[in-house]
Design a binder for these strands. Structure first.
Lengths: 247, 247
DNA sequence: GCGGCGACCGTACAGTGTGCGGAGTAGCGA
DNA sequence: TCGCTACTCCGCACACTGTACGGTCGCCGC
């Protein structure tokens, strides 16, 4: 008596479908599926099992294409750097507008993918992803063509990118927190503000600051202005230094 | 026949020790134990169970003092902010040296506790910890007493802290990566550099940069100089803006 | 044809955060 | 002095994690 007559899976009843009727897994597919999952549900929801089912694959099937979960995250982070538009950044554009445009690109990338704030800490900036390299090269180029020495260009790049990463990862972390809480921005602000006002008692300057911010309340625009203001301030400092180097 | 005669735990054989022979758990104890654990073994090693055993407590005993693991991390992060020395920051000190000193304090705190790079993303800056508030108030104060308006002071605080957080969390992430790998800094550099050199082919400016850095190699001092240079650049920009506001 | 290689997957293991209910104790009002 | 309540602490359980391991199977070079 054969096994399939007992309803058990056997060589005969088994589907026998080829490995080829599903398109084979590829690194790019894995990375972009992970990116979708991260955007949709945040970093806590990224598990190898969930990623597997999303790809019609087993839980451990990704490990032939990717060494670790950490390595996967590195790849996805670099993918975000890859989204930044570098076209139209050449020697004809004024260096300040070029740097500003790159800075905005980086910041917008972070805001589009707020989970990146959590990912950055796990990965380190030492990741030599091709897209990050491309971005660095472009930024260096902008400074050099504006007349900065290579060392000064590096200094400028480091300063600007540190600033942008500081601002953007902070904003992204807040955004991610908000998304995790499941509340709308409106609800969150309404719940957050009284707490903040309470906490700020006993710190006179912070209290004045909060009081001043209650009126004249336009989150997005003022945030953007503040970012540009800080960036402009850095660029001013850099420009003064270049003139110093020239003289 | 009673249970203890069968070797089972019972009322009679049970140790019966009072809850008081171990000093009771407290929030501060938990936080400082977590800090020790994080410093010793990094963020991946921080689990509630390990923390419990370190405190001679059960796995879930901390939950009466702390809501979440996330909340615990918020508390520990604020503890790090609390380590920053604010003494000697008053109206008599020049604002630039005051800001610089605070910036160094923050950066050193991050470098002392490299796991913080991972923790920051999970927490968001919206954490209204008392120590962060104290630090913000102090920084605001420095700017205000230097003659900045409240809005300008906020702008200055945001710009400087974004820069410092960007630099320091990047450095800290690298440090944490290094610690996790278990290698010495020397080993790591030796293993990392050829890879970087390889990766940098095809990016002429980056290649020149790496070539230039191979000679004149003094990691710590140049890093510190670069940090101060960027900071000074920001302060220059801010100062120019203040003059503008005055005129 | 066939041997090896590499992609894919099922299973398993050690570990995670934390909800729940029970136990024991301190403090407090009567 | 006696309850009663509130609170701290803990053992257990549950769902879920990353990933090591070994097996199976299609494909490619010999």
């Amino acid at each position: 008596m054969s096994a399939d007559q007992q309803g058990l899976p056997s060589v005969w009843t088994r589907p026998q479908r080829s490995r080829r009727d599903q398109p084979a897994l590829s690194r790019d597919q894995i990375v972009s599926a992970a990116l979708e999952l991260l955007d949709a549900e945040g970093i806590d929801a990224l598990s190898m099992r969930k990623l597997g089912t999303r790809l019609n694959a087993g839980a451990t099937s990704m490990y032939s294409h990717v060494a670790n979960k950490d390595e996967l995250i590195e790849l996805v982070v670099d993918e975000v750097y890859g989204e930044i538009d570098l076209t139209g950044i050449d020697s004809s554009t004024d260096w300040r507008t070029a740097v500003t445009r790159l800075a905005h690109g980086l910041r917008n990338g972070f805001l589009r993918h707020p989970w990146i704030a959590s990912a950055l800490g796990q990965v380190g900036m030492a990741a030599l992803g091709p897209n990050l390299l491309r971005l660095s090269e472009a930024l260096l180029g902008v400074f050099e063509e504006a007349g900065y020495s290579l060392q000064a260009a590096e200094q400028g790049m480091n300063t600007v990118s540190a600033y942008v990463i500081g601002v953007a990862s902070t904003e992204a972390a807040t955004l991610a927190l908000l998304a995790r809480s499941g509340q709308s921005q409106q609800e969150w602000v309404e719940r957050f503000w009284p707490v903040a006002e309470q906490a700020v008692q006993g710190y006179p300057r912070l209290r004045r600051l909060y009081a001043a911010q209650r009126e004249g309340f336009d989150v997005d625009s003022t945030r953007g202005d503040s970012f540009d203001e800080g960036l402009a301030c850095i660029l001013d400092g850099l420009e003064a230094r270049r003139r110093l180097g020239d003289g």
